[in-house]
Design a protein around this nucleic acid. Structure first.
Length: 905
RNA sequence: GCGGGCGUGAUGGAAUGGUAGACAUACGGGACUUAAAAUCCCGAGGGUGUAUACCCGUGCGGGUUCGAGUCCCGCCGCCCGCACCA
């Protein structure tokens, strides 16, 4: 799920000793105003509290818990072998929310699993002669250890890996259920074929049109494959987006565009009688029937049945079709390719210009998957059609006139006109607006017939295609189907499930190991008992990740879910992951939820009530004089305004490059293990939450992590310092309670604000609030350094305790140590989120800026809710305002209560 | 190519249409120290200026508004997704 570069031969990043002085491990003693405090040592404290939480089974969800359920889930990781900082960021965010919701009294489900099938395991198998299973489970073990070291509040008893037989067995049940309820289809579709390796390639394995391993030019090939009928739900998946009000708007927009609903006309063009084809008509789909009078050609897809028919007797056409197939299947490559076509020799009748005909082309930009696989081209009002028309010298007839256009002089240059306007040059459509013309032309074609059916029918079309789930690979969930030459394609009977992957496979031959396994695929037909073969395709790994969130609610059930339990937990209250999954994973999960509902495994439509997409972790890049990438661990950066870098060992000058997503290839990675070992998990967590808004990229810097570490020690010192003050007791005779009210206001405001910021996942703002409280406590301590009254001491204890509590979701280990030091019994994780006194959130006076003509000229202090006339009087009496008025009276006075005054002169 | 996003001091960023730069980092100065580290305090968007103060300033160009970082239109730059990477 979370994208990770596959582990390469050189293994994990070199483990260099950290260059910084060692903040966690040093035994030095901190001098605090004459007393001594030991530095907080995460290496001792973190394992200790992790064990304490484990022993108390804090995060294990109990079935009889009556508290309100709250399900927080982060996208589960692909087990690449090591976690990276992106994982730390992702899981820390979810963890903060989980811990906070727990403190707010919820029964929190926060599980973890592994998106464990997929291509990298097979690549590793081929490169390093390791078995995908062994490789995957070893990676899981390593990553689990790393995740545990960052102190996540996870119910590990629910851990699942999608490559566990127990998991994919239920996925096979789901597949067969979907088959039963009619959501599975089998049809042809295209794949990237490597003619040298004789294997199917993923899009990412096609580089510049060539196979990544063989370098051979990739071809498109048709294979019969399994599909899930996502398109049955096109309309519903679209309209239900409106109900997802806790999803980012940008994700909903992307999904809306992906589904791509368009209303248009399905339109038949009659083939001119006597042409060299059996076809009597060509059916096109268009969203712009209003431009029909501007039509100048017909284009059909290279995969259109008519194209195949015509190519049979025409080597040039056959060559062109073969040429278009010599590109990858990715939409991007198809879109970017030059718009090319070949005239087929056929003509069709122009449907509204009597006597006129249109030439029929085969074109490389017409997709068979969309609409009818054929279009009419109106070059004046579609850019692709225009490019095509200019190349092949076809007429360009404008039929939509912009409001400001002149009908006699309006011409189309290099850019098609796609804006609004009125139809002209179009006979009975002349003068109509675009939408009115669409209705008129639909009515016109609706009553005419071609080949016995209406010439035109209004139709809704979707860009969304069915989901092809067949993969010609080993490391995936076997599709539980048997092919019998006599009985056809049959589901594996329930009693024979699961279909288990064989382990004795070899990767030294090209192609799918399941296919050339000596025995695995040969079985008796479940119906006739004759010789039959298993389906050797496995499922797309997106299938695995489309229902794991449901499986977590009953991870050991014999059935895919236990509906009553799943319905109680789902939908996921807050789902957190990368924006790279905005379309496919999330759309497939939404489909799966509906499909599981139809099959009786769930009773809901939408799997994720709240969605949050977090940004990446990025880092500067470094290169030496030879242009080789260098790891940050090997580089020492110096200087402030003019930064420069040298190699840590050789001292050679190093170029500081751009800031990019952490990746193995550019070596700009920071290893979480090293960070945890050096600074501790709390510091890493804190830094990942600080500064950058969570939806945006965060830049990893040495200074940033150092700063986080300093703040952690500062909190510990605040607590230790306070304990010393408390041990000494109030100063004899001190009765001055100055600052108490301010401090308490600051404390209560912080508690309230941190809570609402965490609920909104605005962790950076929560962090800033906590800094401000720490500053306020520091100032208060300073002010009371010589004498402290009992009330001041009490306020200080309240402040320090609340500080520890608001810090607890983010730096949980530190918080536990502080809580214990403060003499509070129990774990801070079990302490309820502190109550806020609403009276302390209100100020009695407010400072209002006073503007003259929108520019700030001064400010006034007035009671909260002060009436306008008082505000006006004070504002106008300001010297700066009087000067600007220069004796005149204001033209206008804008007074926004408690916010601002603007004097317009 | 299509779709989506982002752009504010040296840096990360804050700012229901209402004091732009909270908070932090880096930097400079000071205190403490034999010294350093650590810690604490102070300074700081740019410009003119002793200062009061004034002018300019949120990628660029327009617009709406009493008031625009925020809303609208048009650009520029960077990033992400595009159905077999996960």
């Amino acid at each position: 799920m979370l994208t990770v570069q596959p582990i390469s031969d050189d293994g994990p990043v070199a483990k260099n000793p950290p260059q910084s002085n060692d903040p966690a491990g040093s035994e030095d003693v901190l001098k605090v105003t004459g007393r001594s405090v030991e530095r907080y040592n995460p290496r001792v404290e973190e394992p200790r509290w992790q064990k304490a939480w484990d022993d108390a089974r804090c995060f294990v969800v109990q079935p009889d818990d009556t508290r309100k359920p709250y399900y927080v889930l982060e996208m589960f990781p692909y087990p690449s072998g090591r976690i990276h900082m992106g994982h730390v960021r992702n899981y820390t965010m979810g963890d903060v929310l989980a811990r906070y919701m727990r403190a707010k009294g919820h029964n929190v489900l926060h599980p973890m699993g592994w998106d464990a099938f997929g291509l990298p395991a097979e690549n590793a198998a081929m490169q390093n002669k390791v078995h995908p299973k062994g490789w995957t489970y070893a990676n899981i073990a390593a990553m689990k250890k790393q995740l545990k070291s960052i102190g996540l509040a996870i119910d590990w008893t629910r851990e699942i890996a999608t490559c566990d037989v127990a998991y994919y067995a239920r996925q096979q049940q789901l597949f067969l259920d979907f088959l039963r309820v009619g959501l599975v289809d089998r049809k042809k579709s295209k794949v990237n074929w490597d003619p040298v390796d004789m294997t199917v390639l993923a899009n990412e394995q096609v580089i510049d049109g060539r196979g990544w391993r063989s370098g051979a030019v990739v071809e498109q090939r048709e294979l019969t494959q399994w599909f899930l009928k996502v398109s049955d739900y096109s309309e519903e998946l679209l309209t239900a987006l409106d109900t997802l009000d806790r999803w980012p708007e940008k994700v909903r927009v992307m999904q809306r565009n992906w589904i791509g609903r368009s209303e248009g006309l399905r339109l038949f063009f009659e083939v001119v009688p006597g042409e060299q084809t059996a076809a009597t008509s060509i059916e096109v789909f268009t969203t712009r029937p209003d431009t029909i009078f501007g039509a100048s050609f017909i284009a059909i897809s290279a995969d259109h049945p008519l194209a195949a028919e015509l190519a049979a007797g025409n080597p040039e056409l056959a060559g062109f079709i073969a040429e278009t197939h010599r590109h990858g299947t990715a939409t991007e490559t198809i879109d970017k390719a030059e718009k090319l076509g070949r005239f087929t020799g056929l003509h069709v009748k122009h449907p509204v210009r009597p006597g006129a005909t249109l030439p029929v082309y085969i074109a490389n930009f017409v997709l068979m998957d969309y609409g009818t696989g054929a279009i009419f081209g109106c070059p004046a009002h579609d850019q692709r059609d225009l490019d095509f028309a200019r190349r092949y010298g076809l007429p360009v007839i404008p039929v939509v006139l912009p409001e400001t256009g002149d009908p006699d002089s309006f011409e189309i240059g290099d850019e098609a006109y796609t804006g609004p306007g009125r139809i002209y040059h179009s006979d009975f459509l002349d003068g109509l607006e675009i939408e009115a013309a669409k209705r008129a032309i639909a009515a016109h074609f609706g009553v005419r017939t071609v080949d016995g059916h209406p010439q035109g029918t209004v139709e809704v079309n979707y860009r969304l295609r069915d989901w092809g789930i067949s993969r010609q690979r080993y490391w995936g969930c076997p599709i539980p189907v048997i092919h019998c030459e006599v009985c056809g394609t049959l589901p594996v009977p329930d009693k024979d499930l699961p279909v288990v992957l064989p382990e004795d496979v070899s990767f030294d031959r090209p192609g799918n190991p399941l296919d050339h396994h000596p025995t695995w695929k040969h079985v008796a037909c479940p119906r006739c008992g004759g010789r039959a073969t298993r389906e050797t395709d496995t499922m797309d790994t997106f299938v695995d990740s489309s229902w794991y969130f449901a499986r977590f609610t009953a991870p050991n059930a014999e059935t895919p879910t236990i509906p009553a339990i799943a319905n109680a937990w789902l939908p996921v209250d807050q789902y957190i992951g990368g924006v790279e999954h905005a379309i496919l994973h999330l759309l497939y999960s939404r489909f799966f939820t509906r499909a599981m509902k139809k099959a009786g495994h769930l009773n809901l439509d939408e799997p994720f009530r709240g969605l949050f997409t977090q940004g990446m972790v990025v880092h500067e890049t470094y290169r030496d004089a030879a242009g080789e990438w260098l790891s940050p661990a090997d580089v020492v950066v110096t200087g402030g305004d003019v930064r420069s870098a040298r190699h840590a060992k050789t001292g050679a000058a190093v170029d500081i490059g751009s800031i990019e997503k952490m990746s193995k290839s550019k070596k700009n990675v920071v290893d979480p293990d090293e960070i945890v070992a050096t600074y501790g998990a709390d510091t890493a967590r804190w830094f990942m939450l600080s500064d950058s808004p969570p939806e945006r990229d965060v830049q990893w810097t040495e200074a940033g992590i150092e700063g986080a570490s300093r703040f952690l020690q500062r909190i510990w010192k605040l607590v230790a310092d306070f304990l010393d003050r408390e041990a000494e007791g109030p100063t004899a005779g001190a009765t001055d309670d100055a600052g108490v009210a301010d401090l308490r206001r600051s404390v209560h405001r912080t508690v309230a604000n941190v809570g609402s910021e965490i609920e909104g996942l605005r962790f950076n703002r929560a962090v800033a609030q906590i800094y401000e409280l720490a500053n306020a406590i520091g100032r208060f301590s300073q002010a009371t350094a010589t004498a402290i009254s009992p009330a001041q001491l009490a306020a200080l204890r309240e402040a320090v305790e609340r500080l520890v509590q608001v810090v607890a979701p983010m730096m949980p280990h530190l918080a536990e140590t502080c809580w214990a030091a403060l003499g509070r019994s129990g774990l801070v994780i079990d302490a309820p989120w502190p109550e806020v006194d609403p009276a302390l959130l209100l100020d009695s006076t407010v400072v209002i800026p006073v503007q003259v003509n929108g520019k700030r000229r001064g400010e006034i202090t007035v009671p909260v809710g002060a009436p306008s006339d008082l505000v006006e009087k004070q504002a106008l009496s300001l010297e700066a305002v009087a000067r600007m008025l220069d004796g005149r009276s204001p033209r206008k006075l804008v007074i926004v209560p408690d916010r601002i005054v603007n004097v317009v002169v």
